[in-house]
Design a protein around this nucleic acid. Structure first.
Lengths: 240, 240
DNA sequence: GTTAGCATGTAAGGAGTTACATGATTTT
DNA sequence: AAAATCATGTAACTCCTTACATGCTAAC
């Protein structure tokens, strides 16, 4: 508990908060990089701009969920590296946060680069992250939010994963029903383009439901044989 | 109020404007029904609430693109019908919109129902609609906007249809490239869930591109044989 | 020597939702 | 009598984007 123990949470987009906390949990970083990863990790599902990220960081900081370091510390290396050399080498839990660097020998320790602020999770922040992951928060199965939750399934408890997947599925099934109802109601009253639009929309939702079904089955199976192959419940392919 | 002294076109969401004008072009209606149809015609792609619809109607009215009638007209028929009997029977320009009532006998023709305001397109409104359909307006191939434009393809010129479909396709191809790039960059650095999220996202985009390819081919074919079979250019479902 | 990328922020505002206010009418 | 549906609107508020302000360094 910092000075602000409880009920500090003002207006803060739950999606962005979860995304930031989740990313910072894998490794501390500064805002600029955070945003880049946000938009690659979340892929085409969601995008954020600096205009929303930096204020969010400010609030999280004020609430004591994250802490900043000014990276004026000694060996600020050549930094920058590959512009996309993002994830740390396997095996390190809290890896090379300040600068992967040191790569080509010493060189220019501390070259300005506008003194980036490196953020890391505090104890409160870790707690909050676990809470968000556990509870599913406000909208884990809505369009906004499901993608983010799914992206952090690796840090989520198995039963919560299942709950979210099933919640998402029934959400989509509701939508399917609504579309199908409108379908039969308006058939022959709309032109072929509108009909085609509905048909394609329905098909997309059906595909996503099938996808969820596979995931759920996969989760259930992994649940019964928890030692089968580590935790590779998805697509084998782990053990990298 | 009513003193609209100044520049006319203020802030108005282009998507909602197009949707409203397009719907009112098929038949005049009042706000409440307009919103219901909006959400069924656009299906799962877009939804609007009264909080955005009514202000939009007010602006369109102030700009002279639509006109309102207070439905005090004489023969208020038995209307209302099925609560979803949406499209008008062919041939009627001003269909069954006035209120039902009269059921128990008499009287009170025009029994309130809170005096609904029926909106219809003015000449300017029709012109504006044609302009929006022709130009593709501001964002006919963005996520928001494509669905609405597509829903009104029946009223859109063939070459514009083709342009929008191709624009949408190249928009999605850009996105595909971005995802694929992130894919190869981060492979083996992200856990299996994130990977699966990307894989599914990519697949969805690929599917939509294939769908667009079929539509484009269908449009091109219909373009070469304009008399083939009425206007059934969609749903031929020719081999891809 | 100018563009492109890194890095952090702020101000203005667009686009839309929820919740509220109001009230009649129909259904349960 | 209560609840749902029809019907129109307004106010506050959320969430996020765009554009701006600032200034450094690396590359072309």
């Amino acid at each position: 508990m910092t000075a602000f123990g409880g009920s500090v949470g003002r207006n803060r987009s739950a999606v962005l908060e979860l995304a930031v906390l989740g990313l910072l949990h894998t490794a501390p970083m500064h805002g600029y990089e955070l945003r880049k990863r946000l938009n690659t990790v979340l892929g085409a599902f969601r995008a954020f701009s600096y205009g929303s990220l930096y204020p969010c960081l400010g609030q999280l900081l004020a609430d004591g969920l994250i802490a900043e370091e000014h990276e004026e510390s000694g060996e600020a290396g050549t930094g920058q590296a590959g512009a996309d050399d993002v994830f740390s080498p396997p095996g390190s839990a809290l890896p090379d946060l300040p600068g992967r660097a040191l790569r080509g020998g010493a060189a220019r320790s501390r070259a300005g680069r506008r003194s980036r602020k490196v953020y890391r999770l505090t104890a409160d922040g870790k707690e909050r992250l676990q809470e968000l992951l556990r509870e599913g928060g406000p909208a884990a199965w809505e369009d906004d939010g499901f993608g983010v939750h799914f992206a952090f399934f690796g840090q989520t408890r198995a039963d919560v994963r299942l709950r979210i997947l099933e919640g998402r599925r029934s959400r989509l099934e509701e939508r399917m029903e609504a579309i199908r109802a409108a379908f039969t109601r308006t058939r022959e009253r709309v032109d072929s383009y509108t009909l085609e639009l509905h048909r394609h929309g329905l098909e997309s939702v059906e595909r996503e439901v099938r996808w969820l079904n596979e995931l759920i089955a996969s989760e259930r199976q992994a649940d019964r044989q928890p030692q089968a192959g580590g935790q590779g419940n998805i697509s084998e392919k782990e053990s990298s």
